[in-house]
Write a protein that binds this DNA or RNA. Structure first.
Lengths: 230, 230
DNA sequence: GTTATTCGTTACAATGTTTTAACCTAAAAA
DNA sequence: TTTTTAGGTTAAAACATTGTAACGAATAAC
């Protein structure tokens, strides 16, 4: 997976540096903004995966920033973690009310920060992909159960590897739709995964073999890619 | 369904407020008590659907409160979620032994709290008033008693550690379902607990060893995680 | 304080999976 | 028909995942 970009909106330079240092050390890309206006501008120009937001800001305050982000459809799904000082309970509540996803009370240890950040991104990631996961796909005599990672042809269970399973689930999830080899790679291994497209052919070959006659549902579209027949 | 009434027993006002706010936002009715005695009085005067209980309380402590509630037939079916600080593992076990239904380690995010609470109420709701004990899982020759933290293979009792027990209960609670290592960590240690996923392998190894032949029910799903066979 | 327990980490070997590259065949284009 | 191109098939190499043991830190029990 590509490095995630984190936007820090914080006016105190020391904290900004501290946080930024730790994030970079943990493998994130970091952008900084010293106030709300600058933060918004950063959002406009870059793809941000998560915002770390100090509530006490000069100019536009944290709550306002939070509201603005969450009210902009384009950014509303970006998770926000508030960094809050003691005695800002009022603001914490207000922030959560305006759509912030979590808060970390100051002083916080870098470890806690990283842990929470990762947890949040993980949760976002899960629910994001879950949309494609129609729990159980039934098509022709095939049953594809994502929850148990199991495929059946009729009543016979077929043992598939992770990649084979993912490809089958992808194709069968949209019968009739043609996927290019690159699309399959992107979906199954993530963008920025570098392989020869031909690797997919080998996977499809194995898949067809294991599925037996049902393997014929996986059709080759010459010059384009593969699809599952409907 | 009518709004569910939640009783918060917690002496720290900040936390009380924060939790209460989030519960209200999620559509619950909330009552608060600053200590155990007050909590009992609330129970007497109102119909409570779930109790959120801080273990560190002035006066009557959390465990005692827990015991009292669970020993009163009238209240014994009310689920209790403990809010526990780090380093209270002893108390967690003790609490679970005295009938608490779940625990959430501090610091917790409001979202996690809500999620767990809803999950618990759903479980209680499913089994209904009819079946009091949804706490014991029986599968194959295994008996897993969450209430008293005990596992038996046939008639032989197996001594498991907290973590091993939780993992087993999680997997066996949904046979056939595949859990990723990360899901197991989130469920067992709380969502922002940072460990290598491989720590789960080691736990599973120990678990299989202790369970003997029954350990074979814990299946490895290569590339994904583990599951309990059904 | 000392000892025992639990849990996370790391290292290594064993095993399984995925990619590559090669060659072969079938379909389209010339 | 011949040439070109895309896809099928296979084996070997590269890579990833898992089981397992050993170590160490943190905590609880003595």
């Amino acid at each position: 997976m590509a490095k995630e970009q984190i936007l820090i909106v914080e006016d105190d330079e020391d904290i900004q540096q501290l946080v930024s240092f730790n994030l970079i050390k943990s493998g994130f890309h970091v952008l900084c903004a010293g106030n709300g206006e600058q933060g918004i501008r950063r959002l406009e120009s870059e793809k941000i995966d998560c915002i770390l937001l100090d509530l006490m800001l000069p100019g536009m305050n944290g709550i306002e920033f939070c509201r603005k982000v969450k009210n902009t459809p384009e950014y509303s799904s970006i998770p926000i973690i508030m960094l809050t000082a003691k005695g800002e309970e009022e603001d914490i509540i207000s922030g959560l009310e305006h759509g912030a996803d979590d808060y970390i009370p100051k002083p916080f240890s870098p470890k806690v920060l990283i842990a929470r950040l990762k947890a949040l991104l993980r949760r976002k990631g899960d629910s994001g992909e879950a949309e494609e996961n129609a729990e159980t796909i039934k098509i022709h005599e095939l049953t594809i159960d994502s929850g148990r990672h199991e495929v059946q042809v009729g009543d016979v269970e077929i043992k598939l590897t992770m990649t084979e399973f993912s490809i089958l689930a992808l194709l069968a999830g949209r019968p009739g739709w043609v996927f290019s080899r690159q699309q399959i790679i992107d979906a199954v291994r993530g963008y920025d995964y570098m392989v020869t497209p031909r690797a997919i052919d080998v996977q499809v070959f194995g898949l067809r073999k294991k599925l037996g006659t049902a393997g014929e549902y996986i059709e080759t579209v010459r010059g384009i890619g593969y699809r599952f027949s409907d």
